[in-house]
């Protein structure tokens, strides 16, 4: 028996919004420690790594490890049926063919159940080495979203250049060039609005706007985003999910031909 309950179904809705543009289907690995998803987009350019810890759920039970292949589009449709104040419970048997989503209104007067067929999937796991990154930048997620959207108008890719002065984002295309510089914030009174740069070595990396614009869909999950970068290795873009876990996106850099 697997059962996981979240009082705030809104968290799960936001998680689905954060992955549905990148993934069509994914395997949800459920164990005693929680729920994990690791999946690449179809083009093998980016990877989503989602971790929801069991202790972050309001109720969690997983008698045996389960790998459940799910259609992200279908799951997203189901979660759109949850009211914003509803609680959500995920439930499956030990050898499941289906997973059930149960939504309960705060006054317990409405109970909705949606059963979704599971799908058989080939497992394609990537071993991500433990890396110490040259630059770790933390910044408001809204600001990062704005920068990605704004610069996407000027080119297909955005160059991230990080130095001890701060981080510079730039894009260029047929119409010209755009650059946005962010300096480290001086006062750390408001953590949510702070920009912090932890640099060992300067980095300069170029990434596809198309993927960055998918990652920023996780913005509503967390006020801050963390960008971990080293030259010539994939970017890690991380959003915390309250006290329950995190979503990390890995994105391969572009290289000059």
């Amino acid at each position: 028996m697997f059962e996981a309950r979240l009082v705030q179904s809104a968290i799960l809705k936001k998680v689905l919004d954060a992955i549905k543009d990148l993934l069509t289907e994914a395997t949800f690995e459920c164990s005693d420690s929680g729920i994990q998803v690791q999946a690449m987009d179809n083009a093998h350019v980016s990877l989503v790594s989602l971790n929801l810890r069991s202790d972050g759920f309001d109720k969690y039970r997983c008698d045996r490890n389960l790998s459940m292949g799910m259609s992200i589009a279908c799951m997203s449709k189901i979660l759109r049926c949850a009211g914003s104040e509803d609680t959500v419970t995920l439930r499956a048997l030990d050898n499941p063919e289906n997973i059930v989503f149960i939504f309960e209104s705060p006054n317990k007067e409405k109970l909705a159940e949606y059963e979704m067929k599971l799908i058989n999937m080939d497992q394609e796991h990537l071993g991500i080495p433990e890396t110490s990154y040259s630059c770790i930048v933390k910044m408001p997620s809204q600001e990062f979203s704005r920068i990605c959207r704004d610069l996407s108008q000027f080119g297909e890719s955005i160059t991230f250049a990080c130095s001890k002065e701060g981080i510079k984002f730039s894009a260029s295309g047929d119409y010209g060039q755009a650059t946005i510089k962010l300096a480290q914030t001086a006062d750390a009174d408001n953590e949510e609005e702070a920009v912090s740069v932890n640099m060992q070595e300067p980095v300069k990396l170029t990434f596809s706007c198309r993927y960055l614009n998918c990652f920023i869909k996780a913005g509503p999950l967390c006020a801050q985003v963390q960008l971990s970068m080293s030259n010539d290795v994939p970017l890690v873009c991380e959003y915390k999910i309250g006290d329950i876990g995190h979503i990390r996106y890995y994105l391969a850099p572009k290289i000059d031909d």
Partner: peptide, 14 residues
């Protein structure tokens, strides 16, 4: 436009 790398070149398939 720079070439897009494949993520699998950076990580090992397991």
């Amino acid at each position: 436009t720079p070439m897009q790398n494949d993520l699998q070149e950076f990580f090992a398939l397991i």
